[in-house]
């Protein structure tokens, strides 16, 4: 048997259409690696606090490292706070600029500056990965919940775009470094999550193609909330269910729904796998009352192969 040494890039970024379970997949990756003895930082770059909620911690101040469990910590980055930190650290006499952070001109730049906030947020991810802010690299793995596909593509494409826009200067140098980290397949993998339905699958296909256009290394295609594949003969049995009593109707409705959606799933996943030339990693539908740590732990066992051999 041919053995392939699988690369587990230390920076794993998760994206996908809204509501497909991106944060869940990010949390499962982080939990799986930390349970296998790795030092893991899970970072939230999306607007909503989904990841911290799933890990069972409250969001701290932006940039603060909040311990979750042994070997696992959480943080969230805000572009504006990251920019202030960057200026103080990297700009000559940067500390002297502090009083201006509330200034209208500065504020105009932060909100109108081309991708300043995105660049700073993703730049700070790189700082954490390389241990630039503390001196020593403390993390074996950094998992990033990058939010919905459009937001993530903008975020991940920003360093390269900025490096092109600014021909010289500090912004050009910083952007070039960050872009190189993101484009290195030994360092970075961007996982794309979908649900087994037409639109989320299609969006996943588009996202993978756009990531490839931008030279960003695509990790796994994860199809979350998959239906169990119905056994042979399942469709024939539906017609034998009685429609005259409520129980029969209820059974039939449940069976028809499962058959319908699993057909959409099989067709859609096969089409997407062919389109992006990549096999899907399927995760099952979990039907607990509230989605929380228990579900994340369950999924982490299924996804552990992505972070450890």
């Amino acid at each position: 048997m041919l053995r392939v040494t699988q690369v587990h890039p230390p920076l794993q970024i998760v994206t996908g259409k809204g509501g497909v379970g991106k944060s869940t997949v990010a949390a499962a990756l982080a939990v799986a690696a930390s349970r296998r003895g790795k030092q893991v930082l899970a970072i939230e770059l999306s607007e909503s606090a989904g990841l911290s909620g799933l890990l069972g911690v409250a969001r701290g101040e932006p940039g603060a490292i909040v311990p979750v469990a042994r070997g696992l910590a959480h943080s969230w980055f805000d572009g504006e706070a990251a920019l202030a930190e960057f200026i103080v650290r990297n700009v000559p006499f940067g500390a002297r600029l502090k009083p201006f952070f509330g200034h209208p001109l500065y504020r105009a730049f932060v909100s109108a500056g081309p991708g300043v906030r995105e660049l700073m947020a993703i730049g700070k991810v790189r700082d954490e990965l390389l241990g630039l802010s503390t001196g020593a690299p403390p993390w074996d793995l950094v998992v990033v919940d990058a939010g919905a596909s459009g937001h993530a593509l903008q975020l991940l494409g920003m360093p390269a775009a900025t490096a092109r826009t600014f021909a010289s200067g500090l912004a050009h140098r910083e952007a070039t470094k960050v872009a190189a980290t993101l484009e290195d397949p030994n360092t970075t993998a961007v996982h794309v999550v979908a649900r087994p339905e037409v639109m989320p699958l299609e969006e996943a296909g588009e996202t993978i193609e756009r990531l490839r256009e931008r030279n960003l290394p695509v990790g796994r295609l994860v199809v979350n909330q998959c239906w169990a594949v119905p056994p042979n003969g399942a469709s024939q049995v539906i017609d034998t269910l009685s429609l005259t009593d409520p129980l029969g109707q209820s059974l039939r409705a449940a069976a028809e729904r499962a058959l319908g959606w699993s057909a959409v799933q099989e067709q859609g996943v096969a089409r997407l796998e062919a389109r992006v030339r990549k096999p899907a990693l399927r995760l099952p539908r979990l039907l607990g009352p509230a989605f929380g740590r228990a579900e994340v732990d369950q999924l982490s066992e299924l996804i552990a192969g992505e972070v450890t051999s």
Partner: peptide
């Protein structure tokens, strides 16, 4: 139907 189909039907209905 065979057992596999019945088990599937039962699980599907309970999930639904």
């Amino acid at each position: 139907a065979d057992d596999a189909v019945r088990a599937w039907l039962s699980q599907t209905w309970r999930d639904a």
